[in-house]
Computed example of a mutant assay.
Amino acid sequence: MFDVGMKKGVEFSIPTIVVGNLSMGGTGKTPFVELLIRLFSEKHQICTLSRGYGRKTKGFILANENASAAEIGDEPYQIYSKFGHKINVAVGEERILAIPEIIIQKPETEAIFLDDAFQHRYVKGDLNILLTTFQKPFFKDKIVPLGTLREAKEGAGRADIIVVTKCPTGLEDDVKAKFSIEIRKFNSEAKIIFAGIKYGKPVAAGTASNGDSKNVVLVSGIADDSLFKAEAKKNYTVIKDFAFSDHHHYKVSDIKKIVESVKENPDSLILTTEKDAVKLKAPIFRDYLEEIATFALPIEISLSEEDLLWLEKRVSVAIKDKGYIREI
């Protein structure tokens, strides 16, 4: 109905940068939004907006120091935990209603980054960034239930930038060319960027800080844990692997099983993702995990210097076009 003009998207006076995908998840949206935050949080008053998938609340919420993963969702809470001192973080199922709330409550906001809003077409973004993985690009996928696509491949035609994420290191030019040919069948104009990922040093995610052990119990609840597992196995011996579904709501029974595995191997620790770490910090689990060394493995988007500069300039243009540039 949007395609044929029966429904219309609303364009706001404030710049809106949309980051999303065609698939059900696992393309690296949150690390990409974090990349944008790093690029622009020092230059502009930024607010991120997402649905807050998996939260136990409804409606518009602007995160504050009392926020939790249960209240605003694991990914928004991860962003707030890392960048809440620099930006504002909001959630709301209906973005078209949430954006006016942001403008009212935070009138100093100069740009809104919409996380996972490619299908929310009631909001007409000023710049639409589509992510797809190297391992399962949208042009090789199918609509659910035969595949993982939320909409037809032709939806890629709405993107201004298409980022192929999770690319292996040293991706050869001929492989990039083949990918570009397939992408061009659905979008002839978008800028195509190939991005890798890089893992940082494990960060303590609990009160126990003994991180010397090389034996780990893996805990993850993400859409695709293959790269997380591969990275862990490079540097650790995996004693046990607890792999839950994406946005898993941890229960006490889950935590008991995880702790039991650690205690069966005294010289071991919990290694988890940043998204899961924020949920393991919930007060209800404190008594079980306070003496268990727990570490999160940070992940970031990796771009070539050329692509990083291009991306920064392109997003800057989208913001500047709306006249929201703040004097520094």
Rank of each mutant, 00 (worst) to 15 (best):
G155P: 04
V123E: 14
I96P: 02
G92F: 03
K82W: 01
E154V: 15
F113D: 06
D126V: 02
A159P: 03
Q78C: 12
K86N: 09
E110T: 11
E75A: 14
G54A: 10
S68D: 07
V91M: 03
S81D: 07
E94C: 12
H120R: 05
A111C: 14
Q105G: 04
D126M: 02
N88M: 03
K58D: 12
Q105R: 06
I104T: 15
G147D: 05
E110W: 02
L49Q: 05
Y53R: 09
D74E: 00
K142E: 15
E94Q: 12
I162W: 09
D116H: 04
G157R: 11
N66M: 01
Q119F: 00
S50A: 13
E154R: 13
V163K: 00
F118D: 09
F134I: 09
R95C: 06
K166Y: 01
G54W: 05
G157F: 03
I61M: 13
I104P: 03
I129F: 14
G92Y: 02
G155I: 06
A156E: 02
Q105W: 01
E94V: 13
I99H: 14
D74F: 03
T165L: 06
L131C: 01
K82N: 09
R95F: 06
R150A: 04
Y53V: 14
S50I: 08
N88Y: 01
K82M: 12
E75M: 13
I87T: 02
V91P: 04
N88L: 01
I61F: 12
C47S: 08
R51L: 09
E94F: 15
G52N: 01
P145K: 11
I61H: 15
F60Y: 07
N88E: 07
F113Y: 00
E101Q: 15
E154L: 13
Y80V: 10
K140N: 15
D141G: 00
S81G: 14
E101M: 13
V89M: 03
R150M: 10
D74R: 01
E65R: 06
C47V: 01
R51K: 06
S68P: 05
L130H: 14
K82A: 13
E110V: 05
A69R: 03
I104D: 15
A69S: 08
P137S: 08
I112Q: 08
N128H: 08
L62Q: 12
K136V: 08
G84F: 05
S50T: 14
Q45M: 04
I112S: 07
Q78A: 10
Q119A: 05
H44F: 09
H120K: 04
L146P: 04
A159Q: 09
T132E: 08
G147Y: 07
I129E: 06
E154Q: 13
G84P: 02
K142L: 15
Y77H: 02
F139T: 10
